[in-house]
Design a protein around this nucleic acid. Sequence first.
DNA 1: AGACCATGCACAAACGATTGCGCAAAACAG
DNA 2: CTGTTTTGCGCAATCGTTTGTGCATGGTCT
Lengths: 337, 337
Amino acid sequence: MGNKNNLAAISERTGYSVSTVSRVLSGKAEKYRISAEAIAKVTEEAHRCNYRPNLVAQSLRTRQSQTVGLVVPGIDNPFFATLASVINAQLVQHGYHTLLADSRENPEEEIQAMEMFQDRNVDGIIAVPVAPTPEYHERVSQDIPLVLIDRYFDKTSLSYVCTDNYAGAYMAAKYLADKGYKRILAIQGVPASMPNRERVRGFQDALHERGIENQVRGDAFSVENGRREALAAFSGNPKAYDAIFAFSSTILLGAISALRRLGITEGKDVGVISYDNNGFLDFMNPAVTRVEQPLQEAGEIAVSTLFSFMEARRAGLPHPAPVQQLIRPTLVIRESC
Amino acid sequence: MGNKNNLAAISERTGYSVSTVSRVLSGKAEKYRISAEAIAKVTEEAHRCNYRPNLVAQSLRTRQSQTVGLVVPGIDNPFFATLASVINAQLVQHGYHTLLADSRENPEEEIQAMEMFQDRNVDGIIAVPVAPTPEYHERVSQDIPLVLIDRYFDKTSLSYVCTDNYAGAYMAAKYLADKGYKRILAIQGVPASMPNRERVRGFQDALHERGIENQVRGDAFSVENGRREALAAFSGNPKAYDAIFAFSSTILLGAISALRRLGITEGKDVGVISYDNNGFLDFMNPAVTRVEQPLQEAGEIAVSTLFSFMEARRAGLPHPAPVQQLIRPTLVIRESC
DNA sequence: AGACCATGCACAAACGATTGCGCAAAACAG
DNA sequence: CTGTTTTGCGCAATCGTTTGTGCATGGTCT
């Protein structure tokens, strides 16, 4: 019934030294040739008092925390929530845990989060970066394994796993063109972010190649932005465009609400297509055709890449070559265009 | 230039002892009457080398971690994602951070998560419990401040902040009744969970009082369950019910997909009403009337309650009386019934 | 019997911060 | 000039682990 529950207590109760107890309980018994008898007594006592090592002390001593920092631009965004879910599940499977941070699309908060991660001795970081330039992340990456996901930087040695936004947007635009749409409006998200830039490129390339009228407006992955831009685009002329490509499902929702307000019926008067994989797109009326990103796969690759870096670090090896991977998204065809 | 960045390094470079440096940098200078000169030199050096305390060591010594554990049944569920977002924001504002865990509706994983929290020395826990009984949580609560949110237990001394699910369901059912619906089907979630039981009670009370036909089916807060139950209920007779009350937005989506498949138009042939506050309900066609829960408020109360417990603990005071609060949800009226 | 090796374990120093206690030197009083 | 107080700071223990090193004991070999 000893109140304390640490190695010292077990040591006292079994008569073996703290070091022996430690070695037994951390599975290093044979490496240090501990007797079968000692092993038996120590493990029994450990079970009896339900010993669990103090991870803080362990972390201080070993400089490992079994913790990975995850920073996203907005955990309330279902897209990032799903990403967090996938990543957390992967980490837990490997015996790691998630220290969560939300940068709220704010570079300063992102930096604060990453400093906090360092202060807390996380073993690695997975980030959806919001900073305009990669310098800070590159600096951190020298000290702590770091993998970017969903967003990345232009010319950088940082590792990332993202979906091929150029290909996705190209597919979507081509699909609209093939369907016969002639004047297509894209409502974009944060203009400086890499996914957005790539989507704009893909969109424009596909339509220029086909000589189809197109325009890009907007500046945020938000419902408000979708609503505002759709209102502005259609309020003068309900037939200003015959299709809308929303760069996120939030934008889509805003745009649809604007269309309805203007008496325009999505899917009939104006075709709509969207980016993102929110399941509810299937339950809208009409169900929304969209570019889906393989989040599960992306999360898995990010985590396994991170682990490979962490392992190299533990082994004292040099940092492996960066992994920079673009996953191909898929076009999910429904009835909205 | 020094490679290390700890108190010892600053101590060496300034010529003051580690203890003095520690006291200066943790703001206890006057308490220990450190000279102005020492304060100046130490803080300057600390800034120069950008000193940041090692939180792991700090945590080991002080038994505080500035960390709160948050366990939810599914971070990919937008409802819990929003909850996590609100709670995390509150915590960060107070200088705390979030250690995240996902029980996936699984009592065993919930226990694992909470043990992990204890091993990592979190200062408090906020949980959406999934266990069938409160015993484990009550035990933990003796060691670590704990506040439940969204779900709670029946007769328990644990603190919780939840929405008044009885009132919410009662409101919704009454609204349907007042609109003239005569045969109402509720599709429920996890039957054993407190919110679900309260919703069933509210639903049945409201309709029994008014002598209106009603039934409750289903067993999970999932799309599949909604779909399955709606199919089963309507496939024999498309007019079996004239309204559906979905106990979550996921259930709603499943039910709607079933209705469409059967050629039944929601809002016209069958009224629908839902629980939950997913913004996209406004963008469905017709927009869905629903019972919304004040998540922001709930999160704030949970966090401030938790902090009050943590403070009492630090001060060595006895655990304050439990806070058990039900917040009234609101009925958001749209066009689906 | 002496040299040698394998065995089984304990000692003590880390990791980096906090903190009770006490020690010098300076200041002051008598 | 001695005794007391104040000022300013350092010593060393502590949190709970991990781990390099070393020391007995007992057995084997020549």
